[in-house]
């Protein structure tokens, strides 16, 4: 058992290294570098050269890569070239908003998907079933930026009920319930966007498994004992059909760390997605690498959690 754990650890490290190295190569080989952003033609060419020297970009790629690797192994993620602040601090700022947004988004998606699927499975092939299939897939069939903008258009611009972007109002109270309420209002539209776009696929998946479970012996037996369809679905089929969802959710945990880029852009959300997009555009190598590593590390953790929770929930898998 211990050797298995060790092997998995070693494999994870190899993967982390491979992903990081791949990203490093990609961002270094892509034309342009951190100094490309100085575009003012009045500035002497020397200004750009100086930026390059400051960032160590005048050294050969191999030397840069090796010193980056050495620093990373020591746990030093360096200082962002764009923001002049430690990468660690920037990531620590961006992670909580992303985790909050995508966490609530995933929760909405799951609960909404389960609810729709259960409702449908109770009356399969009825008119309601079909209507729900189409409506739940509508948001799934649109790019998330369009869904987000549509929601903003209706609920923020036209009706004025909810704020269109950001985490807090500019005039938010410093603390207390008012601030919490303000934050909650700002969460509604982006969370709804993630929830709506994800709900459809999840509902389709669960409905399929629910129907499958309904034809299984134990459900049929329950029905034969006089259990209502509703009860049979809710108490017998649903728990079993929901089990594979745990794996699916475990696998989407990385999104908690890497964020949903488009939703963050549309709602000006200060999360990981936007941070990494800006870092890639600015060729801010320390920040991009830091973000990538944290994301990849989250995957390793996510997989572990998924494995563990499945073995806890499903007696068949338990060793």
């Amino acid at each position: 058992m211990r050797s298995v754990a060790l092997r998995r650890m070693a494999a994870s490290l190899v993967v982390l290294w491979a992903v990081a190295t791949g990203t490093y190569a990609l961002v270094s080989l892509a034309p342009g570098d951190a100094a490309s952003r100085i575009t003012d033609p009045r500035l002497p060419a020397a200004a750009r050269e100086r930026w390059r020297r400051d960032f160590g970009l005048d050294r050969p790629l191999r030397a840069r890569y090796l010193s980056w690797l050495a620093a990373t192994v020591r746990g030093d993620m360096g200082i962002s070239w764009q923001h002049r602040r430690p990468v660690r601090a920037l990531l620590a700022e961006a992670l909580p908003p992303t985790a909050l947004l995508t966490g609530l988004g995933l929760l909405t998606e799951t609960l909404g998907g389960l609810a729709i699927a259960t409702w449908q499975a109770m009356r399969p092939r009825s008119r309601v079933d079909r209507a729900l299939t189409i409506t739940s897939l509508l948001a799934y069939a649109m790019p998330s930026f369009a869904v987000g903008m549509g929601l903003v258009w209706v609920f923020s611009y036209a009706l004025g009920w909810l704020p269109a972007s950001h985490m807090l109002s500019p005039t938010a109270a410093a603390s207390g319930w008012a601030r919490l309420g303000d934050g909650a209002l700002h969460l509604v539209l982006p969370v709804a966007t993630i929830g709506l776009t994800g709900m459809g696929a999840l509902a389709r998946y669960t409905r399929g498994s629910l129907l499958e479970e309904q034809s299984q012996g134990y459900v049929l037996a329950a029905r034969a004992r006089g259990c209502s369809r509703r009860r049979a679905v809710l108490t017998h089929a649903l728990p079993n059909a929901a089990l594979p969802l745990v794996t699916v959710l475990g696998l989407s945990l990385p999104v908690l760390v890497s964020g949903s880029l488009l939703v963050e852009v549309v709602f000006a959300w200060p999360g990981m997605g936007q941070l990494l997009l800006q870092a890639a555009l600015a060729r801010d190598i320390p920040l991009l690498m830091g973000g990538t590593l944290v994301g990849a590390a989250a995957v390793v953790l996510g997989n572990l959690l998924a494995d563990v929770s499945v073995s806890l929930l499903d007696p068949r898998v338990r060793p």
């Binding site: 190899v14 992903v19 990385p254 880029l261 997009l277 890639a280 990538t292 390793v300």
Partner: peptide, 16 residues
């Protein structure tokens, strides 16, 4: 694990 880890890098950033 590699497949999972690639998933962790925001895809749009990769594509960009």
């Amino acid at each position: 694990r590699l497949a999972d880890a690639v998933l962790a890098v925001p895809m749009l950033v990769l594509v960009l």
